[in-house]
Amino acid sequence: MDSERKAILGVDLPVVAAPMAGGPTTTRLVAAAGACGAFAFLAAGYKPPEAVADEIAAARAADGSFGVNVFVPAPVPVSEAEFRRYAARIADEGTRYGLDLAAAARIEDDDHWADKIDLLVRDPVPVVSFTFGLPSAAVVRDLRRAGSRVLVTVTDPTEAGLAAELGVDGLVAQSAYAGGHFGTFTPAAPPPARPLAELVGLVRGRTGLPVLAAGGVGGGDDVRTALAAGATAVMVGTLLLCADESGTSSTHREALADPRRDRTVVTRAFTGRPARGLRNDFIDRYEGDAPLGYPALHHLTRPLRKAAAEAGDADRVHLWAGTGYRAARAAPAAEIIDELTRAL
């Protein structure tokens, strides 16, 4: 797998710093991972293309191996009636922060998709990865012609087969134990949860393509198991949430270390798309009422989540985390990555 990893990622170390949109992934974190020989992804999600361009420039200046992760526009439509019903249902949560959630507009955007693809074709990076669905064959072709290797996130063998038909260079096999949003193509009916090693074997067997393993990694043993199952490298996100160089909010960091936060759950209450995070009061109150509806619900709750994070209110903010969250700790990223690879 060493030569395969070198060809796809340009590194020898079999650890990849996952793209964590919304703040945790910073250019400092990408630089720190690159400095110790790991690969790292910038997270283009929720950013305008100008900000992505600035981060690419900063990553280049740091001289590490890096890529860019992009959200594929894969809307999960929600009707105006259902949106208004849910906005009214959660309205009381915003009152304490001066927010009128009941009056929020229903926003269905594509996260600057075309502009980001144009940027990456004009100013190519070594690797571009996609999540939430399949880019078009033309996008894959244009990026590869520009010199980028292209990866797609998949959550089961069927998705892997569809991605392989596009001529991509590799796949990210994301298990249901990963923190944050599921990359599934079918958010209304996500694939069954499988152990990461099993998923890697199935995806690799279906396509023969290089596979980055992601989801539920809690330490070096999990890295070794995924590599033994055929992974080219192992992607870690949750374990880097508390790294010194990450942009994770203090509210989120404290929740990860709080012994009362004793489990992760899958929820759509915050964004209208399945995602795994620490259980909190907002999820308990509204999960049963939350419709599918991404990105509309993401935009609806975003001001609340931002205000709650700033106020230290961990019960009204998404606390994305995979099942290995107990191993997350405050330390330099290089130290965390070294622990994961020391016994390989």
Score class of each variant (00 low, 15 high):
residue 6 K to G: 12
residue 7 A to G: 10
residue 7 A to K: 13
residue 11 V to M: 09
residue 13 L to A: 14
residue 14 P to N: 08
residue 18 A to D: 10
residue 20 M to Y: 07
residue 21 A to H: 01
residue 23 G to D: 03
residue 27 T to Q: 00
residue 29 L to D: 04
residue 31 A to V: 11
residue 37 G to N: 05
residue 40 A to Q: 09
residue 40 A to V: 13
residue 41 F to H: 01
residue 41 F to R: 07
residue 43 A to R: 03
residue 43 A to D: 01
residue 44 A to D: 05
residue 45 G to Y: 06
residue 52 V to G: 08
residue 55 E to Q: 12
residue 67 G to Q: 07
residue 69 N to C: 05
residue 71 F to I: 14
residue 81 A to F: 04
residue 81 A to K: 09
residue 82 E to H: 13
residue 86 Y to R: 13
residue 87 A to T: 14
residue 92 D to P: 00
residue 92 D to C: 06
residue 99 L to E: 03
residue 100 D to T: 12
residue 106 R to I: 10
residue 109 D to H: 02
residue 112 H to M: 07
residue 114 A to Q: 14
residue 124 P to K: 12
residue 129 S to D: 03
residue 142 D to Y: 11
residue 143 L to F: 11
residue 156 D to Q: 05
residue 159 E to P: 11
residue 163 A to Q: 06
residue 165 E to V: 09
residue 171 L to F: 06
residue 174 Q to P: 03
residue 175 S to N: 01
residue 179 G to M: 00
residue 182 F to V: 04
residue 184 T to M: 13
residue 186 T to L: 04
residue 188 A to Y: 12
residue 194 R to Q: 14
residue 195 P to F: 02
residue 198 E to I: 02
residue 201 G to D: 01
residue 208 G to T: 12
residue 212 L to T: 02
residue 214 A to W: 04
residue 232 T to F: 06
residue 234 V to R: 11
residue 235 M to N: 14
residue 238 T to D: 09
residue 239 L to N: 05
residue 245 E to L: 11
residue 246 S to Y: 10
residue 250 S to Y: 01
residue 252 H to W: 08
residue 267 T to S: 15
residue 270 F to Y: 15
residue 276 R to M: 02
residue 280 N to A: 00
residue 281 D to G: 12
residue 295 P to V: 03
residue 296 A to C: 05
residue 299 H to D: 06
residue 300 L to R: 15
residue 303 P to Q: 06
residue 310 E to P: 02
residue 317 V to I: 11
residue 319 L to A: 04
residue 321 A to K: 05
residue 323 T to R: 15
residue 326 R to Q: 03
residue 330 A to C: 00
residue 338 D to V: 03
residue 341 T to V: 13
